[in-house]
Design a binder for these strands. Structure first.
Lengths: 149, 149
DNA sequence: CTTGACCTTCCCATGATGGGAAGCCCCGCA
DNA sequence: TGCGGGGCTTCCCATCATGGGAAGGTCAAG
């Protein structure tokens, strides 16, 4: 494929990659992608190669990878002598992180469900939810351990 | 209980409430709590009432409530003519939000698990994870006649 | 009086994203 | 050739909750 024949502006690159122009500039500013070539006017120029990279970044973002990890993935992507074990390890660590966050949310949701279940919602002022938040829980939800670390 | 007899500094209030001094000042700055009384020296002074409020905030935070919603909860807490239905509704909405976030994470984790499962991690450069991120997915989710398993 | 712990305010950083302003550029149309 | 509209540039600000750290004032114990 001949490069340089189908250069495009940031708006077109944005549309083709699914990454907002704002984000493309941001990724350049923080060094995630190398500075784009410039038109004499100062406009950034993107070729299919760059768009491909941006799409890679977009997909990684949609999987929740943080920018720092995406930088690692990009380096591995470009390194033809990489080991897929390294890539797998990075992905595995991120999956673990996602599960950690899920567990934290699940814990909150469970506690919240319990409170909501304890509140009749019949329009009176008495409210176990507020009582619990105020620390005046008439009965401990979990017999041991306060919600604070 | 008589108020004003056991005033304390921000550090003590922090220890008793479990909310960091930094955050206590922040909550005051953004108007979540009313400005603390001041010692002649300029030190903030907190009584049991304020500490109680801070603990309320801390518990709500530990359930993942955002500050804006905590402000609502505080108002309801103080409103003796509140309806527990209102409180329940606020809590319910937050629980829904938590579940929404959990679902998003679960989706990412599932996709990631699939990729990790497809990568042998045997040390060679070939890596389905990078292939997928690059958009060169060799096989759809259900392998339809692909040469590699 | 010194020392050390504690307090004050102010600024900055996180992480990823977006909004918006001021100003330049480019293309098409009359 | 001139103009208008849309796209591009940079720069600043906001989110959301939290913390780090500096410069300087205060207090209590030794």
């Amino acid at each position: 494929m001949r490069a340089g024949c189908d250069a495009m502006t940031i708006g077109q690159a944005s549309r083709q990659s699914g990454v907002s122009a704002k984000m493309i500039r941001h990724y350049e500013a923080i060094g995630l992608v190398s500075p784009a070539a410039r038109e004499t006017s100062g406009y950034r120029l993107y070729g299919p190669e760059e768009v491909h990279t941006l799409r890679f970044i977009g997909r990684a973002r949609s999987l929740g990878f943080p920018i720092a990890i995406i930088a690692e993935l990009l380096a591995l992507w470009r390194d033809r002598s990489r080991s897929n074990a390294d890539v797998r390890h990075v992905a595995q660590r991120h999956a673990d992180e996602l599960r950690r966050k899920m567990a934290a949310l699940a814990e909150m949701a469970a506690a919240l469900d319990h409170l909501v279940g304890a509140c009749s919602g019949d329009g009176r002022p008495e409210c176990p939810i507020l009582d619990e938040l105020a620390g005046e829980a008439p009965e401990p939800v979990h017999p041991a351990g306060s919600p604070f670390s």
